[in-house]
Design a protein around this nucleic acid. Sequence first.
DNA 1: GTGGTCTAGACCACT
DNA 2: GTGGTCTAGACCACG
Lengths: 120, 120, 120, 120
Amino acid sequence: MGIEFDKDRPIYVQLVERICGELVSGVRQPGDKLPSVREFALEVGVNTNTVQNVYKQLEQMQLTETKRGQGTFITPDILKIRSMREDLKRQLVDRFLNNVETMGFTQEEVLQTLKERGGI
Amino acid sequence: MGIEFDKDRPIYVQLVERICGELVSGVRQPGDKLPSVREFALEVGVNTNTVQNVYKQLEQMQLTETKRGQGTFITPDILKIRSMREDLKRQLVDRFLNNVETMGFTQEEVLQTLKERGGI
Amino acid sequence: MGIEFDKDRPIYVQLVERICGELVSGVRQPGDKLPSVREFALEVGVNTNTVQNVYKQLEQMQLTETKRGQGTFITPDILKIRSMREDLKRQLVDRFLNNVETMGFTQEEVLQTLKERGGI
Amino acid sequence: MGIEFDKDRPIYVQLVERICGELVSGVRQPGDKLPSVREFALEVGVNTNTVQNVYKQLEQMQLTETKRGQGTFITPDILKIRSMREDLKRQLVDRFLNNVETMGFTQEEVLQTLKERGGI
DNA sequence: GTGGTCTAGACCACT
DNA sequence: GTGGTCTAGACCACG
């Protein structure tokens, strides 16, 4: 049971990120039901309270809707998900470029490392 | 006084990263003296103990040496710094590619966003 | 409350040594839970932060593992503990022989004192 | 210039111990003149203030005498030195046996390690 | 002045 | 309740 978590960041934040990733990548589709709190807690090896918190965050971000007695569902609003996808992509790239700059890496060496490391 | 810190990660970790970045980017050179604990604490607007912790981490990473009563100095060992530079570059790229993959972004769109966003 | 501490060495170092000793001597077994930070602090009569520091050191030495919200546990890795035992033994003996030499004691007199003083 | 110092103990304590060792081992004889504060400071790579402190400690232990304008001299009292020698020997052995016990080492294994490690 | 250790007391994330 | 981080403020050894 379980995943590894970055030791230096709150678990619930990491779980929120992970689920966003699954939304964006299509692993979870609009309208899909999320696992129950207990199920998910068991699956990732975490306390149910923590998962409660995660689901709360997601709802505040309007990415999920809770239906009483039925569970938590991914918003059927495709546009919302698409726009999040673009947001995340931009964020990811920006953070990357930002780091590249502050570390003083040149474009050439970064490009080369990108190739070496199997992507792009 | 001060810098902004990521709210969701320990300040001292962020400071360590920051200094590592400055080492790697050449802003700080081998042999340089770091600001004194109290100075740095004032500069970034945190408690001296927090800075102490940061400097301790750096020393454990063998990136700095402290001389009693004189201060904390960046290791003159250039090789150590070079190797850290390569490590950080690889880490950065790997994390990026990793995220790209789990988010289900295609190479093309990422490349395009990289261009749009001003780099590479 | 409390133990006596060597006045000329940091408390946290002495506590780390002490726990290492307990590991090595078998007083604490692999997998055992250490007392909670607060408990231990109370027991030895020091501040919780000091104990935190001790536990952090132990974890960096990979002698313990901490489980969020549950506590700090001795590594179940018996080999790690065995090897530490041998290390400490060698260290102890080496330091002793080293001192004997620099003090200019002869083997005979040391052996005799060892016998007189109740051991070996 | 310089010696290595145990990072976790005051330098002046270590220097006092060292000189005691030299007295006991005969490297320094009763009546000998100690190096001047500045000389000694230079020799061991330490600030003169620290050496001042060391000499003060030695005088308080009545192991040295200061003659105005001439320097610091080892007490000519041979008995004092002999008794210190015995004290230190007993201390050394006792601390060793103490550690052996608290670490739970058996007499046999310690004896064997003593032989392996080149002494006794 | 420098770094290092310690205390008291607070707040957070997690079980 | 558990560990982890942070602050404020103190004292020490060293230069």
